[in-house]
């Protein structure tokens, strides 16, 4: 019994990291913005969480800084694709590359700082300790985040406005919804969750850093969200599947004597498989993406 509980609790860090990231991503996309910046900003947030935990010595402040930075990127993306007639894909991709560049520039020097501090104080660590209490807290946080977002989406005016902006921004606008404001808000909330997810990835799950650390995991979260139709509760199921796979891939590797490369490849193959499965099943029709996802929203000026 004890071992079962322990093996469930062990999944908590990966689960929460992916779940919050996928949840934030899905919420933002509900507002109609195709979010291709996710991997770059996830990587940047991981780097910022790592660096600020080293410089401030406090992982919770680091998590806050990470969420704040990610939020700024979300607001920026929402602003340019709503205010200007710009391709969502191009805007998202350029922010992704910007995130990769900034992330590496911020993460790399922090490694030296970390070693320096470690020399003076051998007990220094940046991570939030992985106790059973931490795991339980993380699960609670995920459930609360899920319920809050469900409530916002289904039970509030804001949620209705977010969904309307994603389905048909022109109609929404005609009904008096300020699409720009709604998308800015969705971007801020969605990306704050992505930033927190990335911080948990770094500070609880894998507290280390090298050049490509965290790169690609944003895409896994993207696949998690897509293959659950961006639904907060279903996203929990897909996140559980991926988190279990990732937490235990190293055990599997040892048990079956697999190459570490095969283990590293598995989540990416699973990401493609998950999207494929979702798309071929009837789920696809029940949980279809917002109608105007990624479409340019731009009102032609007729008065001039």
């Amino acid at each position: 019994m004890n071992t079962i509980i322990h093996s469930i609790l062990a999944v908590a860090p990966a689960f929460t990291a992916y779940y919050l990231t996928a949840l934030g991503h899905g919420f933002f996309e509900k507002s109609g913005v195709l979010n291709l910046a996710i991997d770059g900003v996830f990587y940047l947030s991981v780097a910022i969480a790592y660096a600020s935990a080293i410089y401030t010595g406090n992982p919770y402040i680091a998590m806050f800084i990470s969420a704040l930075t990610a939020s700024i990127f979300g607001i920026l993306l929402a602003f340019i694709v709503t205010k200007l007639p710009i391709s969502h894909g191009a805007a998202g991709l350029s922010l992704m590359f910007l995130g990769y560049g900034l992330g590496a520039l911020i993460g790399n020097p922090a490694v030296f700082k970390f070693r320096e501090i470690k020399m003076a104080n051998i007990g220094f660590s940046i991570n939030i300790p992985r106790t059973p209490l931490t795991s339980v807290t993380l699960f609670m946080v995920s459930i609360v985040a899920c319920l809050v977002l469900l409530y916002i989406l289904k039970g509030t005016k804001l949620g209705a406005a977010v969904r309307a902006s994603g389905e048909d921004p022109h109609a929404a606008s005609a009904l008096g919804i300020d699409v720009l404001k709604i998308r800015l808000l969705a971007g801020a909330i969605g990306y704050a969750l992505i930033g927190i997810g990335a911080a948990i990835f770094e500070l609880v799950w894998l507290p280390t850093w090298q050049q490509m650390h965290g790169m690609g995991h944003g895409w896994i979260a993207f696949a998690i969200s897509l293959s659950s139709g961006r639904h907060p509760i279903l996203t929990m199921l897909t996140s559980t599947a991926f988190a279990t796979l990732l937490t235990y891939q190293y055990l599997l590797q040892a048990a079956y004597n697999l190459s570490p490369e095969i283990a590293k490849m598995t989540p990416f193959i699973a990401a493609i498989a998950a999207m494929t499965i979702f798309m071929v099943t009837p789920l696809r029709r029940k949980l279809s993406p917002p109608l105007s996802l990624g479409k340019i929203f731009f009102k032609e000026e007729r008065t001039l």
Partner: peptide, 27 residues
């Protein structure tokens, strides 16, 4: 056939390609 965004799938497949080649070179 499945309208999976090619940006996501091609990027994910970059990692798969890296790891396949890494597997061969290491093994």
């Amino acid at each position: 056939y499945l309208s999976i965004d090619e940006v996501a799938s091609t990027l994910i497949m970059n990692y798969i390609a890296y790891y396949i080649l890494n597997y061969l070179v290491r093994g």
